[in-house]
Design a protein around this nucleic acid. Sequence first.
RNA 1: CGGGGUGUGGCGCAGUUGGUAGCGCAUCUGGUUUGGGACCAGAGGGUCGUCAGUUCGAGUCUGGCCACCCCGACCA
Length: 491
Amino acid sequence: MAKFLTNKEENYAQWYNDLVIKADLAENSAVRGCMVIKPYGYAIWEKIQAELDRMFKATGHVNAYFPLFIPKSFFSKEAKHVEGFAKECAIVTHYRLKKDESGKGLIVDPASKLEEELIVRPTSETIIWNSYKNWIQSYRDLPILINQWANVVRWEMRTRLFLRTAEFLWQEGHTAHATSEEAVEETERMLGVYSDFAENFMALPVIKGYKSENERFAGAIDTYTIEAIMQDGKALQAGTSHFLGQNFAKAFDVQFTDKTGKLDYVWATSWGLSTRMIGALIMAHSDNNGLVLPPRLAPIQVVIVPIYKNPEQLETISVAARNIKSTLEAQGISVKYDDRDTNKPGWKFANYELKGVPVRIAIGPRDIENSTVEIARRDTLTKETIPINGIEAHIGRLLDDIQKNIYLKASEFRKANTFSVDKWDDFINILDNQGGFIMAHWDGTAETEEKIKEETKATIRCIPFDAPEEEGKCIYSGKPSKRRVLFARSY
RNA sequence: CGGGGUGUGGCGCAGUUGGUAGCGCAUCUGGUUUGGGACCAGAGGGUCGUCAGUUCGAGUCUGGCCACCCCGACCA
């Protein structure tokens, strides 16, 4: 099988590309660097959105929407922020087209040049803080806990479906607080939301930690991250939460009067998670037969495939299949009954495996006779025959079990590919031969981090929150270090 | 922006010393099939990325341009 996919072990990057295309998640578009997210891929995003949105609201946040366009002058108000994004911005300079003098075709009307150029948002801190300035006068106006679901544009040189595209979808939370402590708390809370989501829904074990100065968000005091390991041993940053201090409040002059009547700048956070998560989902769990989706994010959790020789048989089987479908749906399980006569069962089996549907139920004449069905689980590719009676409890348990098993498998993979390293030679060997997470000592300087990056392409993914204090020597410089940090090559 | 590669039916590809375009998959029709990607018979579908040049004649040779992919630098 799997003759339609490149082998994961042979060419991981090609396997990933094949999978995205063949599973019908997305494709490249006519616009360089921009992808079309196809219905099946978008359905996964909708599941991600629905769950995160629920979690954001449960933690007191509300949704709003700010403009796609940002006046250039806003953008340049926070020095580090500009530096971080200036190199990858799309800019609107005109607002009108006209017919080309010499015939057909359209040209930009030079007379429609904008007074001030508009930047297509690469992130929305500036446009949002420009609004917050008008919304905040007193401590009574705080906190503001807003999230926005949006598209953003970052003009990337090289793109890959879901992992890096010029335009992508995400959510960005932007909060304003009266105190530093409260903002830090919020930053931590939202990283917690992300890691809960990753572990419980994506079945993706993540390491929470601080970014080093080099890797920090432009304009942030502190960036927290969740880092996940992919099956090729590379790390993927799955979500970030930033403590912005008073940087944006100062840039946009957002002050408030506190309880004692004193004027102070507002404290801020921002946090984001993007369609890149779909890339993580694919790369963390899938195999050479196709996608493996955790049940809690699978657009279709159970597919029913009838096996029949003639229309009469199909009719009998369909009655049983529809009964099972409604029984399962009553339990909140999403079920597709695929009774299309245009494809054979074997084709359907392979196709739903490619698409990562967690559970497949096959019903044929034999099953009708015995009141049974054949159940196949995607994660282990195993099959069993069970009685139809009590199927809803069985499938419910099975889905839970698959969710847990996928998480467990990913956890074990991470464990087997995380190395505690003390010698520079070992550091290089591991990166070159197998990849993975490396826990090593670091002297805490940006120079050392930069040199390690130059020599090995590995970066500090994070300084884990739970890294124990431990005396040691920097893997590169030999200078004293107090704790190990997480190194890896990354996406 | 550097290095490499590719542009030929919807998709994947072949096309020899230049002679008027072919294969597989997919599609459509008919029939037999259906418990792991069915089979047989027939049919439709191509300004060969683009512009110019050489030639009696260009998918093929020459030059320019464009697009895309892969590997680097940059990044979620």
